[in-house]
Amino acid sequence: MSIIASRGVVDRQANFYGGVRNLLAAAVYAFILIPTLIVIPISLGGQGELSFPPRVWTFELYGQLFSSTSWMTSILQSVKVAVITTLASMLIGIPASYGLVRFEFPGKKFVMLLLMSPILVPVIVISLGLYLYLSRLQIVGTTAGLVASHTAYVVPFMMMTVMAGVKKLDPALEFAATIMGASRLTVFFKVVLPQLRPSLLAGALFAFLVSFDEVVIAWFLTSPATTTLPVKMYSSIQWDISPVIAAVSALLTVLSVVFCLISVMFQPQAATDSAP
């Protein structure tokens, strides 16, 4: 409050509080970011150890990563799982989000609660449940089983983003199209989806990252043949502490940052789109 109140008056006290505020913010950001960013210099260190600061600067670890079949297999497996999961969660999540926001039906509140449950229930509990369930179906260890589980886990994240987007749409546009003779499908594809583009992009990137980074469910459900990257990293830390993991982590960090930038880049446009 005092910061806002004194904003209009430039005096020493305001400057002091402003300085303290900035310092504090910088410290908090540093605390959050350093563990993430530190892997980048470490990954540029040589083989044989994980140390900071690195004694030599080299891309050797990356060379090792890209020439290792086991690492590359798990990276490709992760990409595959994340891509299919993203597509599947869009296929389910986008129409579901639209329906839940636009239409009223009995039990809507219950459905909403149910949808959010994967976010509320601890992942470890979900994983165990999925493991028992999929064992019965005899698809533990298959890519299909993992994709199905990841899709169930990711859909709520996708829906939160898309539902927020749908809530911002003016229903008059959909009614305008309807009265001009558009069918429900036409309204959905020609009126709703184009306006939702920024939310869909954000939702898809988010879904991809969640699936790509997900370790607990994958730990339970993958076999050696279907190991994903996070699972491989986790076991690598536990068993052989290969410094290659630093290169993998650095790549993951860069990927996340790039995704965030893409998503931020498309957000301002969304704001002007919905402006009157």
Partner: peptide, 12 residues
């Protein structure tokens, strides 16, 4: 045919 107060034009 209908004309709306807030125009209801498709922004894209």
């Amino acid at each position: 045919g209908m004309v709306f107060q807030n125009y209801a034009l498709l922004p894209h």
